[in-house]
Design a protein around this nucleic acid. Structure first.
Length: 724
DNA sequence: CGAAAGGCTCTTTTT
DNA sequence: GAGCCTTTCG
């Protein structure tokens, strides 16, 4: 047990040993925070003799939860099955499955993701007689989510409405919750919110959890919201052994209603809290750390944490400007190739980070063309693909037939002749009776008095569908998850349906991949397996599926990169409008968050950092010329390497190192040209101008060269001569 | 009713 | 540029 502490520095040690009472750990990037959490749990178990079942550790992602458990296996061999480790959402889902009945939640509830939520909201909007064209479901969704994140129920919302729009939101919110209840479904926010309701309304239940979880730890505390903090406060109220770990400088989820002020609240709610600072960085070079400090120090509102390291100075930061996003991507692949050839890094050592998902496209194309393997974290997420959602919807329906979003999704897939009209009629009929759609289907042949106005054909079709589902539900009691999966596919004819459509093979492969996931749940009792499988499908994040064993370059958003580290990091799109994103221009608080986001990216790098920008970038169809990111200017000059220009090896597109001293671009003689002119290039030979586009002080031309094909060139750099 | 085509809007970050 | 929605035609 001594060696548990021997590997730690004094500050880390202090944090590990402070197991009685509240603790606030402010941990800078790379300061061994994950290590501290793991050692703290091990210390509780091995040294303090605390049973694992009395410990709860909340992580930000499922992957972090797995990593923590993995790490613990190495340190503490005790029985870890009883240890509670997971995200807030996963832990709350579990609590509600066991105890939700007390507040009227059926344990078979399904979890609605964003798109499920949007479809249900659209229905709610229509049902409260509002025009869905006038009110966007996503705007209302954001408002509702904001309300839920502040523990505001529809009643409270309506009672305190201050504007017409809030009145609208309130009405939709109210109906939306009713529809959720009818579908026996909870959305992401509900998982948290209902847990609070459960605890508040049933002190006896809360007491059981308080007694169970005598030690609580929360990672990434700066990114918790008010509801999450409330859950922690409720459970920790009895023993007050609560340890939160966070870094205000890495708070990047305020748009998801995370509230850094929770850190201040913590100090107020637990005045006796011990505060520990972890400031020694073990990850990055001096150079990288200094650059990070330069960037973050501009923020006004922050607790000064001063990071230091004994690591070596390391290499300078490479700041590069390329011509376009394609060139940017090519620069990255070229550079990675070079690093690999020189034996400086493996593919897996390298990560490319960007602000928006849309940026991944150009990168992906370059990697494919270059033949370099990469792993994209996200893209069209697996569970968001149409075919995967269809299959999941069928399975959800088997588990919980009341799930109306899933029912509407699949009732006409494959086509069963049930269009909007019939389904609208069914929905109205069910709505009037306040029953779920599935219940309505079950009543179709039995009700004598009021029948929905359906054509005999539609009626017949619905009955067939109902019997199909009844059959599958019956089967689900007898067979295991994989058998159920196969029978569902067979009985619904989904395979043939998929294969007859476009990209059928590819889509079918995805279904098979989903089946492979289902196999992991095969040994569980059927019902349990189905629930676990569906819960997994609802709560996975992209980072969770990041496979460390594959040798490939990682492409990832800055947000998702939080908590990760790589020897080599490329931050691309270092431009005004991209990073910082233009949506944050008019709000200083948001701008500070963009800066933190940049800081998070920079501090992911261990040895070598590249900051890349494109002179020209196409966004939403159009093409923009952006200034370099303001964050680049906050990196001290002496940390940036100057020297060679970067230009693509295949095309002579103008690219150059961004230089701070010379804002003015080198002035070369620019020949006056127009489309159709004959030109000569030193290297490419003779050609004809196809496209001429004037820019501010320059022009972009596309030239068709006789020998080398079409090239896009920037006039000021291309040294084109006008030929006679 | 359903498939296909055309028009529309909205594009930040995600458990 | 993409997905979603509506319209149109078979």
């Amino acid at each position: 047990m001594e060696d548990l502490l021997a590997e730690l520095n004094p500050a880390q040690r202090e944090a590990v040993e402070a197991v009685g009472g509240p603790v606030l750990i402010l941990a800078g990037p790379g300061s061994g925070k994950t290590r501290v959490i793991a050692h703290r749990v091990a210390y509780l178990i091995k040294v303090c003799g605390v049973s694992p079942r009395h410990i709860m550790a909340v992580t930000f992602t499922n992957k972090a939860a797995r990593a923590l458990k993995e790490r613990l296996k190495g340190i503490a061999s005790a029985a870890l099955e009883d240890l509670t480790v997971g995200t807030f959402h996963a832990i709350c889902a579990r609590i509600l499955r066991r105890e939700g009945r007390a507040i009227g939640i059926d344990p078979g509830f399904v979890i609605y993701d964003d798109s499920d939520q949007i479809s249900l909201l659209k229905r709610a909007i229509v049902e409260v007689d509002l025009d869905p064209k006038q009110y966007s479901a996503s705007a209302i969704s954001a408002a509702i989510s904001a309300a839920k994140s502040r523990l505001i129920t529809p009643q409270i919302y309506l009672d305190s409405k201050q504007s017409y729009f809030e009145g609208v939101v309130g009405r939709v919110y109210e109906r939306y919750q009713e529809l959720l209840r009818l579908s026996n479904a909870l959305d992401f926010d509900d998982l948290l919110l209902e847990t609070v309701h459960l605890f508040r309304q049933h002190p006896d239940v809360l007491d059981r959890f308080q007694t169970r979880y005598q030690h609580i730890m929360v990672d990434e505390f700066q990114d918790t919201n008010v509801v999450q903090y409330e859950i922690i406060k409720l459970i920790a109220a009895k023993y007050r052994n609560v340890c939160v770990v966070g870094d205000p400088d890495q708070s990047i989820y305020s748009w998801r209603f995370a509230d850094v002020r929770n850190i201040l609240s913590f100090e107020k709610d637990y005045p006796e809290a011990k505060v520990t600072l972890l400031e020694r960085n073990y990850r990055s070079t001096q150079t990288i750390l200094e650059a990070a400090a330069g960037i973050i120090s501009v923020n006004r509102q922050r607790k000064p944490i001063k990071l230091w390291t004994e690591n070596e100075t390391g290499e300078l930061i490479t700041v590069v400007e390329t011509y376009s996003q394609q060139e940017e991507a090519r620069f990255v692949t070229n550079e990675v190739e070079k690093l690999v050839e020189q034996g400086k890094a493996s593919l897996a050592d390298c990560a490319v980070m960007y602000r928006t998902n849309a940026q991944s496209r150009a990168l992906e194309e370059a990697f494919i063309r270059y033949g370099m393997s990469y792993k994209l974290v996200a893209g069209t997420r697996f569970y968001e693909r149409r075919e995967v959602k269809d299959v999941v919807a069928y399975l959800r329906l088997i588990q919980n037939p009341d799930d109306s979003v899933s029912l509407l999704r699949v009732i006409n897939i494959p086509p069963r002749g049930l269009g909007q009209k019939s389904l609208g009629e069914l929905a109205n009929w069910a709505g009037a009776k306040e029953i779920s759609l599935y219940q309505a289907l079950g009543l179709l042949d039995s009700t004598a008095e009021d029948k929905p106005a359906l054509t005999p054909r539609a009626l017949k079709s619905m009955e067939v569908f109902y019997r199909l589902m009844e059959g599958l539900i019956a089967r689900s009691q007898e067979v295991d998850l994989v058998d159920l999966f196969d029978q569902m596919i067979a009985k619904t004819g989904y395979k043939d349906y998929l294969l007859s459509g476009t990209e059928g093979e590819e889509r079918w492969d995805n279904v098979l991949e989903l089946r492979t996931v289902a196999e992991q749940y095969r040994r569980l009792p059927v019902e349990e397996g189905l629930v676990a499988f569906l819960e997994g499908a609802a709560l996975v994040s992209d980072v969770d599926s990041l496979d460390d064993s594959v040798d490939a370059v990682t492409l990832i958003t800055l947000h998702k990169a939080k908590g990760l580290e790589y020897p080599v990091v490329f931050i691309v799109g270092a431009e005004e409008g991209v990073l910082p994103h233009f949506r944050s221009f008019d709000d200083p608080d948001q701008m500070e968050e963009e800066r933190r986001l940049c800081y998070v990216g920079v501090t992911r790098a261990k040895d070598k950092l590249y900051m890349v920008r494109a002179y020209r970038r196409s966004l939403m169809g159009g093409s923009n010329v952006n200034e370099p990111s303001r964050f680049l200017k906050d990196i001290p000059c002496h940390l940036i390497c100057g020297g060679e220009l970067w230009s693509g090896e295949e095309s002579q597109v103008a690219s150059r190192l961004y230089s701070w001293d010379t804002e003015a671009e080198p002035v070369l003689s620019i020949p006056e040209l127009k489309a159709g002119d004959r030109v000569r290039h030193e290297q490419f030979g003779d050609g004809v101008v196809i496209v001429y586009q004037a820019l501010k002080d320059d022009a972009e031309v596309v030239v068709d060269f006789k020998w080398t094909g079409t090239k896009k060139l920037l006039l000021s750099f291309a040294r084109l001569e006008k030929a006679a």
